[in-house]
Amino acid sequence: MSWISPFALKDMGILGMNRRNHAFVARYNPRRFYPLVDNKLKTKQLAAACGVPTPTLRLVVNAQHEVKYVKNKMQDCEGFAIKPAKGSGGKGILVISGKRGNHFIKSSGKHLNERDMERHISNILAGLYSLGGTPDTALIEDIIQMDPLFEGYSHQGIPDIRVIVFQGYPVMAMLRLATEASDGKANLHQGAVGVGLDMATGKGLRALQFGKSVSRHPDTGKELTSITIPDWKNLLVLASRCYEMTGLGYIGADIVLDRNRGPLMLELNARPGLAIQMTNGEGLLGRLKKIEGLKQQKTDIHDRVSQAMELFGKKTPGP
């Protein structure tokens, strides 16, 4: 067990759970807007109205009696993802990457039969994965085609990019890579690798798994910090647009890169996690305070993103 002194954390401006809840989530996220992000179906509808691209929705399952028709309707689809509309923390997401006879193949390579899949949908409808156990809806979306850029960076799952957006300014970002330990999921606490990204360039800063520094991907051995996200500014603009879309002042936007469609907004989180600070080697608090301290906040998204890139980018040491 290694420990760090609270004063060192304070010096680095690390944001703790209590402070996040008290000074940011509770203050900048009006409760009435929560359903917009807690319900993925609503998020998608809203995004479509605001011109924010998301993975294509194939089917919505609302009631138990519809469950048995799912397999017929999804017959032609090669791969798809089943998600609970009100799920949190990646719970209950089942990714089917292919089909063999009557069996579905999970992204991890495991086989599932039709009954397994139907049970999973029933569980979603009954509210097993939803907040508070309320009845839920199951969404079936197109699977995302991984950008060739990420070849060798991820084990099974699709990497996603988490951007913290504060009052419309992107303040911090990280790339999340699935590993064998995380079972193809991109959640850090489940064992995924997080790579902090430079706000100015989208280049990798430092990588972390299970709270410890790593330099290579544990499964593929690929050098992690060498990665650079292409078209970085556009990705940040997409993330920042979610502020106007939801009215929430402090959110985490999860963005994936699709081979054919480019950056897509996957989901939003009104209580984004704190591990992002460690992948960046920097605390959030200083950056958040900088935004709070701005004299005049810009209304144009592109101006905001440019300002943020300038404020928070790592200054490359001169030659």
Partner: peptide
């Protein structure tokens, strides 16, 4: 959290 953020000790 003092344990959780311990990885910040070796930051560059």
């Amino acid at each position: 959290e003092l344990h959780r953020f311990a990885a910040m000790k070796d930051r560059t």
